[in-house]
Amino acid sequence: MSAPQNRINNPSRRNFIAATAVGAASLGAVALAPGLHLIEVSQASAPSAGASSKVRWGMLIDTTKCASGCDECVQACNTENGINETVQDARQGSQWIRKIDLKDPQSGRQHSLPMMCQHCEKPPCVDVCPTGASMKRADGIVLVDRHICIGCRYCMMACPYKARSFVHQPLTEQNPQVPRGMGCVESCTFCVQRVDRGLKPACVEACPEGAMTFGDLNDPNSDIARRLANEASTQVRADLKLGLGVRYQGI
């Protein structure tokens, strides 16, 4: 392939590209060099830097604000990620996020919370995956690489939160930003396609009570880091010591 070589081996050409990036914006379709053609501005601008290990994405969920009958977060997730297929048996359908109602049998106290992939620091799904399709990005987001997922479902056996679903039937009409299809395992991605554009996950944005906070746990000035530093919070099944990215309050 000549295009990448041009970019890497020729410093003057690289500078030239950088210098013309602004100019290219107004031109639309433009040929920069033989073998390196750019059509649109969106492509012409340099690719993003990618996930950084300096960032650790996390979520804080205040269950005292979470109403039992409300599933706005689930609906928002389904819309954003295109999970609307009809399934005959609900147990065979995908649930990236679900509402769980809890009741303490001794005190009778009831509350409700959303449960999804907890984006573990040491994810069991990544440990057990035979091909390495289950993976964790540098910024802590746990994903399934469906390009190499063979659909063995071992990760589903290993996940203590039942956060993963297997696609049981052929799909069409996916969201262009969220590819998904039959025979692979999938789970909450923290809406990685939004996070990479600087947006919050769909569920966080949709929660009418503002019960969900999303942000960088490593940034001491972020809202989430400040709250975690000052308020009590718990990890679900903290005994497993998986280092969860999702924390709960009020459970």
Binding site: A90, R98, K99, D101, K103, D104, P105, M115, Y161, K162
Partner: peptide
Amino acid sequence: PLDIFPGMEVSSSFMD
């Protein structure tokens, strides 16, 4: 069912 919340009675749309 998985024991996600030990000691609690749980219910959900996903067989919890």
